[in-house]
Simulated assay, not measured.
Amino acid sequence: MPSMTRQGNNSGNSRNGKTSKSVRSQNREIELDIPRDRNSTFEPTLIGKNEKQLNGFDDRIISIYSRGLSTRYIQAHFKEVYGVDVSASFISQVTNAVMDEVKRWQQRPLDALYPIVYLDCIVV
């Protein structure tokens, strides 16, 4: 029976410990242990290198901000609802990332005519 060896064993690129990483999720902040290898070739697939939050976090910030709420209110909301401390500067970074798109949408040319259809119904 062949011996079971771990991938990378005796290849010059074996495991080299782990690093801790704090990641924001929709419900709370999560502490992760990210494995390392000697050649630094390990690429996490779920949460990439230098990413600090799971998918959907930025979308929630933009959704709240689009309703006209301030960054301080959003900060308080995330603390109250999710128990996560989010800095006002982080919220500003997220909202500034979409501001160019918002400005383009606001300055788009409008059509001369918009047809509207009204429907009415009575159920007896």
Rank of each mutant, 00 (worst) to 15 (best):
G68S: 05
E80W: 05
S20V: 09
S22Y: 14
R36Y: 08
Q107R: 09
Y65K: 07
G48Y: 02
M1R: 15
W105S: 08
C121Y: 15
S3K: 15
V102A: 01
R72M: 10
R15W: 07
M99Q: 10
S66C: 11
S40Q: 08
R28M: 05
R38A: 01
R72Y: 12
V123R: 12
T71Y: 12
V124T: 14
G48V: 04
V86Q: 00
E51H: 11
F57Q: 00
A76I: 08
V94A: 02
L119C: 12
S63R: 09
N13V: 04
T71D: 07
Y114G: 01
S66L: 13
N27V: 10
L110R: 14
V124F: 15
I62D: 06
M4H: 15
P115Q: 06
L110G: 09
A76D: 15
S87M: 04
I74Y: 06
E80D: 12
G68Q: 08
W105F: 14
R72F: 11
R104Y: 13
N55A: 13
S66H: 11
P35S: 03
A97V: 00
S89L: 08
T95A: 00
I61A: 04
S89C: 08
P109M: 05
S14E: 10
C121Q: 14
T45H: 06
Y82W: 14
R38P: 05
P2V: 13
E43V: 11
R72C: 09
M4A: 14
R104P: 08
E51V: 15
W105I: 09
R38L: 02
D85E: 11
T45C: 07
G48Q: 00
N10Y: 13
V98Y: 04
S20Y: 14
S22L: 11
I62P: 03
I74G: 03
L113E: 11
V23D: 01
F90V: 01
A97Y: 10
R6C: 12
R6W: 15
R67G: 13
E80Q: 11
D85S: 12
Q53H: 14
S14V: 07
G8D: 03
L46G: 10
F42A: 02
D59R: 07
S14I: 04
V117C: 12
L69I: 14
M99T: 07
F57G: 04
V102C: 05
S89H: 00
Q75H: 11
F42W: 02
